[in-house]
Computed example of a mutant assay.
Amino acid sequence: MISNQGFKLSNSGGKDIVASPDGLGFESPRILVEVKHRTEQMGSNEIRSFIGGLRSGDKGLYVSTGGFSKEARYEAERAKEPVMLMALNDLVYSIIEHYDEMDSKGKGLLPLTKIYWPV
């Protein structure tokens, strides 16, 4: 459950995560997430396939540890529905940026400690 926004995760039916306010994927907005752990960049074919599974009003997030090719980024930019591509560095920065807003369960899964460095 993503408690901050009131979203619940449901059985993904092929996607890694389907998040929606009702937890079943019936209420909008519906956010579909695909996560790939690869050393190589994701190409345009994978992104086109992901985009093809989005319905009108959906939002998509594709996370890849290997990053994305130029062609894959182009496919995401021209998609009818909003699609965000997130490489490993983007994911790390996003977690750090929003860590204080995470619930205790999330922080328990990923315990981080702030370190202050003199300038």
Rank of each mutant, 00 (worst) to 15 (best):
D90I: 02
V18G: 14
L32D: 03
L32M: 12
A19V: 10
M42T: 10
S104R: 10
G43P: 03
E40K: 14
D22K: 13
G43Y: 02
V18H: 08
S28T: 11
P29R: 13
M84R: 12
T65Y: 05
F26W: 06
S49Q: 14
K80N: 09
Q41A: 15
I95G: 09
M86T: 07
I96P: 10
I31V: 15
Y99R: 01
L110Y: 04
G25Q: 12
D100E: 15
S20W: 02
D90L: 03
T39H: 04
K70S: 11
G23C: 10
Y74A: 13
E101F: 08
L24C: 07
F50W: 08
F50G: 09
A72M: 02
H37F: 03
T39A: 12
E77C: 00
E46K: 02
L109H: 13
G106V: 04
R38L: 12
S20G: 04
Y99W: 02
T39M: 05
R73G: 05
G53D: 07
L91S: 13
E77F: 03
R48W: 00
L32R: 11
S64L: 03
V18N: 12
S64G: 11
A87P: 08
K80P: 00
S56D: 02
T39Y: 04
G52K: 09
S69T: 15
L109A: 13
H37S: 06
L112D: 13
A19C: 12
Y93F: 13
F50P: 04
E77G: 01
S28A: 15
G66S: 09
I47T: 14
L91H: 08
L109K: 14
F68G: 04
A87L: 03
L85V: 06
S56V: 00
S28G: 11
Y62M: 06
E40P: 00
R73K: 15
H37R: 02
K80A: 09
Y62S: 04
L32Q: 05
V63W: 08
G53A: 02
M86C: 14
E101H: 00
V18E: 08
V63D: 06
R78K: 11
V83R: 07
L54G: 08
G52A: 10
K59A: 11
L110M: 10
V33P: 07
R73I: 01
G67E: 05
A87E: 15
E46R: 02
P29S: 10
F50R: 06
F68A: 07
M86A: 13
Y62N: 01
S64M: 04
S28Q: 14
S49C: 10
T65W: 06
K36E: 12
D22S: 15
M84S: 08
E97G: 00
G60H: 01
V35A: 15
Y99Q: 08
K107P: 07
A72Y: 01
V35R: 12
G67V: 05
A19W: 07
K105D: 07
L24N: 09
L88S: 11
S28D: 10
R73T: 03
V83M: 07
S49T: 14
T65V: 02
E75I: 06
L88H: 13
G43C: 00
A72H: 05
S94P: 02
V18P: 12
Q41S: 15
